[in-house]
């Protein structure tokens, strides 16, 4: 597949369960890289992932994975990985045995499956613990096994559903590092489903936002944060005079704590701020550009904010 080709394509995807519409005419494409899929519970994230994994058939529209129909092609699933949010690990067997078995279940010959299982557990940071029964693992270790089973057969694309669920801050950071490594070092594209915007913002190159089964936004993460770039300034005195001077120049300014936030961060805004500071004779204490977080973006546009955005 040539670079730049879409790996996943949803075209007018609709899924209805009797009276409930889980996905409503959704179209988007996902390319090489790490893509975040955001949305509240019931937004349609899981339904979209299930359709791409071929587990359910869409009511209408089409879902294409690695160039093949997601529902019709069983073979394509040999090149996909899936890390579910819910528990999916057997307690009695060791991680090495489990990953070897699932590598075989993905079509790898037994000898290759054993080698891949050991390598994958090493990359997931579980090499020393690989012969212990999974039932005795901590939550963080279990999450690593879940990620490992999704990668053990070296997929081209992997779906990660809430990979940081249940992890403490250190474990969460380590898991996000692994997710980043999965693409940047292993070369495997990722679709990261999460309701934690901070995770998505720090990890993903692009996002797809769903709400109520509809597509709200999709594009590069940088695009959303750049759109709302601001400048934060603090002055020692004459703050009111500065505000008046800025407003006379048509600059959108809002008070925030002890400082002022100014919308837009191109060169002309800096010039206007300089002129206003001189006019108001306000001694500048601090001036810094500030890029809005995804959280700020969706909180501001309250009507399209996914739940848990502040997390």
């Amino acid at each position: 597949m040539a670079s730049g080709d879409a790996l996943l394509v949803a075209e007018h995807l609709t899924k209805r369960y009797r009276d409930v519409t889980a996905l409503d005419d959704v179209s988007f494409s996902i390319f090489d890289g790490i893509t975040g899929i955001l949305g509240e519970n019931g937004a349609g994230k899981s339904t979209a992932i299930k359709i791409f994994l071929g587990l359910i058939r869409p009511t209408s529209g089409s879902a294409t994975v690695l160039g093949q129909d997601a529902f019709e092609s069983v073979a394509v699933r040999g090149r996909l990985g899936y890390m579910p949010e819910h528990d999916c690990l057997p307690g009695q067997v060791s991680a090495a045995e489990f990953l070897t078995h699932l590598a075989e279940a993905s079509g790898l010959p037994p000898s290759a499956a054993r080698t891949r299982a050991a390598d994958t557990l090493r990359h997931a940071g579980l090499f020393e613990e690989r012969y212990r029964a999974i039932g005795g693992y901590s939550t963080g270790m279990k999450q690593r096994v879940k990620l490992g089973q999704a990668l053990v057969h070296d997929p081209a694309f992997v779906f990660l559903d809430e990979p940081t669920a249940g992890l403490d801050p250190v474990g969460r950071e380590e898991m996000l590092d692994l997710v980043r490594k999965t693409h940047r070092e292993f070369g495997i594209s990722v679709l990261l489903s999460s309701h934690l915007m901070a995770d998505v913002e720090r990890t993903c190159d692009r996002i797809v936002v769903l709400q109520g089964g509809r597509l709200v936004e999709s594009g590069e993460v940088g695009h959303f944060t750049k759109e709302t770039e601001t400048v934060f300034i603090e002055v020692d005195t004459n703050r009111e005079a500065l505000v008046a001077a800025l407003q006379r120049r048509g600059v959108v300014v809002t008070a925030e704590g002890g400082g002022l936030t100014i919308e837009g961060a191109d060169e002309s805004v800096y010039d206007l701020v300089r002129d206003a500071l001189v006019e108001a004779q306000a001694p500048l204490r601090r001036m810094a550009p500030r890029r809005a977080a995804l959280t700020d973006l969706f909180e501001r546009d309250g009507d399209r904010a996914p739940a848990g955005a502040g997390a």
């Binding site: 073979a75 528990d87 690990l89 699932l102 993905s106």
Partner: peptide, 12 residues
């Protein structure tokens, strides 16, 4: 244990 979900997303 939910392992069935890992089988059904494989070429099976």
């Amino acid at each position: 244990e939910g392992v069935i979900h890992l089988y059904l997303v494989r070429p099976l």
